[in-house]
Design a protein around this nucleic acid. Structure first.
Lengths: 210, 210
DNA sequence: GTCTATAGAAGGATAGAC
DNA sequence: GTCTATCCTTCTATAGAC
């Protein structure tokens, strides 16, 4: 009973995640979610009341998953260069498993900025920021040739790293046909990107050595 | 008469660009477009027949504007390092004037990949590719310390440059509140980004000198 | 070419039986 | 908890007067 409830609710939720992330809030249809879940449309309302409430539940879950992925990567205790390699390898692999995720998050944040405020307040972004900064500040000073990074640059570097990692997935349908015309595949491009992106960031950090 | 027609059609088209790029195909309402254009809703159908045809006209126009911007930047005859600086300065400035453009393009390409195929075929992407490659190949060899870039890396570098430039706008509503909490403004971040991004790319190219 | 009025379809939501 | 039937609103699209 409670077992069965949980099962139905779960099926609805999974179906909703699929449909919403493919079509977005506006493009999604309750009927399609019901069909995919293999249940009646009115059950959606029984469990989640309205389309918007269902969407919010889905959005929060997906956003939390994404932020947790970032947090778990940054939390790894590794030397900076290792961590950078680990970041791109893990993050690109993660998005290969969830390729629709970046554009979904970006689109919906854009359509409804208010949605973000709740989330930003909940997330301990400071722990992410600090997970990077101390390493540049402390570990760094023990190096033979320490990196010289101004604090303002941290946000530039971090957003660039995320951009490099996320953009290919957000722009996949633009990028893939162009790559094909030059004889490359998207998969090969992604594999090469793990190493390229790491070298890219590290090259910049090293260019700051005094 | 023809003058007046042109005016009405133009007003509709401008209004449609605004509404579609804010709300996307699915979220846009014909009524809102009509209101913004200051005309009757049925006139939309008189001039453009269906919502989809109107949307396609808008999408093609916006996409063409974007590609032309890229093309005009790459077409500049400048030494590579100057061109890189010029690219980020011009492109970021362009997007400051059209901040909703990146997420609009990315979202709609994602929702309807087929839309892209027509466009890709029309665009002479080869001229863009070649506008970069020869410079690394020819101009480059005259340098005292030429860059050593494999051809496969070109796509990695170019997509990274675009990612670095575009991502802040696509993720603005996520980025801005976080920046504010660390005492930075989005505008200041963007201004700094022009120089940062250039240095970033150049540092990588220089790291390849033998 | 522009408007009013309305058709026609789709989609979210609810009532009520089981 | 799950289904059928249906309400009601919204939206695209068209008919027809001016």
């Amino acid at each position: 009973m409670t077992e069965k409830d949980k099962l139905t609710e779960e099926k609805i939720f999974e179906a909703a995640k699929t449909v919403f992330s493919e079509r977005g809030m506006d493009g999604a249809r309750m009927q399609e979610i019901a069909d995919l879940a293999g249940i009646n449309k009115s059950l959606l309302h029984y469990y989640f009341r309205t389309k918007e409430k269902l969407f919010n539940a889905v959005f929060d879950d997906i956003a939390r998953m994404m932020f947790m992925k970032f947090a778990s990567i940054f939390a790894q205790e590794l030397p900076l260069e290792e961590k950078i390699k680990y970041f791109f390898s893990e993050h690109i692999e993660f998005m290969k498993l969830n390729p629709g995720l970046p554009i979904f998050i970006l689109t919906e944040i854009n359509r409804n900025p208010a949605r973000m405020k709740k989330l930003i307040e909940k997330i301990d972004y400071n722990s992410i920021w600090k997970a990077i900064w101390p390493e540049l500040n402390e570990e760094n000073m023990k190096r033979e040739e320490p990196f010289h990074i101004k604090q303002d640059e941290i946000s530039q570097i971090v957003t660039s790293a995320i951009a490099i990692s996320v953009f290919p997935f957000a722009a996949r349908n633009l990028l893939e046909p162009i790559l094909l015309q030059t004889g490359q595949t998207f998969d090969k491009y992604l594999e090469e990107r793990k190493e390229f992106a790491s070298n890219f960031i590290i090259a910049y950090l090293k260019s700051h050595k005094s």
